[in-house]
Write a protein that binds this DNA or RNA. Structure first.
Lengths: 155, 155
DNA sequence: GAAAACCCTGTAGCCGCTCCAGGGTCAAGC
DNA sequence: GCTTGACCCTGGAGCGGCTACAGGGTTTTC
């Protein structure tokens, strides 16, 4: 099948499929005489796997590692446990900071009644005051803000 | 004060401060004779405000709008309510999908006992099966994946 | 035989930074 | 006077995970 068909079957945009190919997640398919990519059932399966992992918010680099296990079924899979564990830890950390965030925002929301002018806006006042560190719970537990990644690469 | 001092005072990297200036969030400061940026107390206050909003995960574009209100204290602040409301809605949507995600991952984690080989790995099997759509709760409520932004701009 | 739908490659854009190259400046210590 | 190190400058590239577009070619449908 061609890229559009594959995309519809897996619920993925064609450009994204080409991106996965470039990123080394999908093997380059055969080409028809006109140069069009020609996919088979195996590609659909692999693509569905990738999408499912992405739905679990697993980064592409880890999906690549998972696919390695799929490709080498006799490898030891102890790492898979660790990988899932790490992903779970990431998600839980993010959840925790987001719950704190929600509280902050919910508290803010009720501080401004309609019809005001910015100078008297409770929300704005609260934000400015909080920025000074008064009564501010969220500086302590800020959201992870990109959370690591990328140490010691390049060059 | 110079950029390093400001950065230390606000807990922000100097490069980030220059980035905020380029992005139009911090007004360009005066310059010393040697070309060094020279900041005053107002800059520190504004920077602290920005960081506080970022801690609330408010996107820079919205912080820019909030700063407009700070700068024009006589403007109507009805929009601020809507802005906070929108941010809260974003956070809650993301929370919801992340809770589903956590469940999925936690369920996965117990599927593989150590010492296995990839071909028999419960996690891998589960992922592959789920990708086929069998017993998969997470396709229905996938994480927001970049969540919008960017419609109808450029050109 | 023209229009619409599809495909190709390659490149640039989004966010919010972070890092680097390749310079200049300035204070302290020898 | 000279080195060392800390700081500062500009401009540009990089991250992840796509998405969009320019500028072409092909295939299908009317």
């Amino acid at each position: 099948m061609r890229i559009g068909e594959l995309g519809r079957a897996a619920g993925v945009d064609g450009e994204t499929i080409r991106y996965y190919e470039k990123a080394g997640l999908l093997p380059p398919p055969a080409r028809a005489l006109n140069g069009y990519r020609a996919y088979g059932a195996a590609h659909l399966e692999r693509l569905a796997f990738i999408r499912h992992c992405r739905a679990l918010d697993v980064p592409l680099a880890e999906i690549r590692r998972l696919l390695d296990f799929v490709d080498r079924p006799d490898a030891d899979c102890g790492d898979i446990n660790r990988l899932i564990e790490a992903q779970l830890a990431r998600v839980r950390a993010r959840l925790k900071s987001m719950r704190a965030l929600e509280k902050q925002l919910a508290a803010l929301r009720s501080r401004c009644e309609a019809g005001h002018v910015a100078a008297e806006c409770g929300i704005l006042h609260e934000l400015v005051a909080a920025a000074h560190g008064e009564a501010c719970a969220c500086h302590a537990s800020a959201p992870d803000s990109a959370a690591g990644g990328r140490e010691a690469k390049r060059r």
